[in-house]
């Protein structure tokens, strides 16, 4: 029997849907901004709100990955059908960039993301948690340094941003006692900024975003997908916080997917 037919029998389908569970109503204090750039090789820099990135530099090693050879994989395969396969891969993404606001530098960011894949497949018995990424390592570590006060260095840590593990894609940005958390989620957000007497500003849509929370309140969000990319920021947020969040949002947009 063709192994592809067997594989197809293992796949799931979606049909007509039933519901319940609610997404919170759109927070009208989050002002949307279009985010442009990073959509083709000639437009590397991001531009959104009054912010613009520049000097994006990536190390040469970020463009390659290493896959460990396995003798067991070669021996335990029948033609194209693997009876057993251990997949080990190492990849990284190391880059830095500067962020300007209205032409003035406001922050400098350095990031190092590592991904270690360790997944094992068994054809003849039930998969265990290693197949579903339990042994994968997916970490991102970054430093955001504000130009206005170079002693203010915000440390950012994130896990599972490549989505290979069965847990939330989330992170934390910390400086002393201050903490900003972010998580990938689905939110109802405004489509257009508020303008006087325009009911169009009441329109909202669901978006898959990284939502940033500060003091248990959502203060910003940035689109997860590349199509129709936008950034939302609460009006009246403290400037240093806004600059840190803008840097983090840029980092999450510029980073590359490392899962192969």
């Amino acid at each position: 029997m063709n192994y592809r037919i067997l594989l197809l029998c293992l796949l799931c389908w979606a049909q007509e849907a039933v519901a319940q569970n609610k997404i919170a109503p759109a927070d009208m204090r989050l002002k949307p901004y279009r985010m442009t750039g990073q959509d083709n090789p000639l437009r590397k820099n991001l531009a959104f709100a009054d912010y613009k990135t520049n000097s994006i530099r990536r190390t040469l090693g970020s463009f390659f990955y290493y896959q460990a050879p396995s003798l067991a994989n070669a021996m335990l395969a029948t033609g194209d059908i693997p009876v057993y396969e251990k997949n080990r891969l190492r990849a990284k993404d190391v880059f830095r960039f500067d962020l300007d606001k209205n032409g003035q530098p406001v922050a400098s960011t350095e990031c190092r993301a590592i991904f270690r894949k360790n997944e094992t497949f068994y054809l003849l018995h039930k998969q265990d948690s290693t197949f579903f990424g339990a042994r994968n390592t997916d970490l991102l570590d970054a430093r955001i340094r504000l130009t206005a006060d170079t002693s203010q260095v915000w440390h950012m840590l994130a896990s599972n941003l490549n989505g290979s593990k069965d847990e939330d894609q989330k992170g934390i940005i910390r400086n002393g006692g201050e903490e900003i958390r972010f998580v990938k989620t689905t939110m109802l957000l405004r489509d257009k900024p508020v303008s006087d007497n325009s009911p169009v500003s009441l329109l909202a849509s669901i978006d898959m975003v990284y939502a940033f929370t500060y003091n248990d309140e959502v203060v910003a969000a940035v689109s997860f997908k590349e199509a129709d990319r936008r950034f939302w920021l609460r009006e009246g947020l403290d400037q240093p916080l806004a600059d840190v969040i803008a840097s983090a949002a840029s980092l999450l947009t510029i980073r590359r997917d490392l899962y192969r």
Binding site: L7, L10, L11, F121, N162, K225, D228, Y259
Partner: peptide, 27 residues
Amino acid sequence: NDRMSDVSTEDRLLKVFNIDNSNKTTS
């Protein structure tokens, strides 16, 4: 072909059996 929201069981099985596939987002 947009960023993958997460890695599913189908993605893993398709990789193991080397079946040609792509992640597509339609808006």
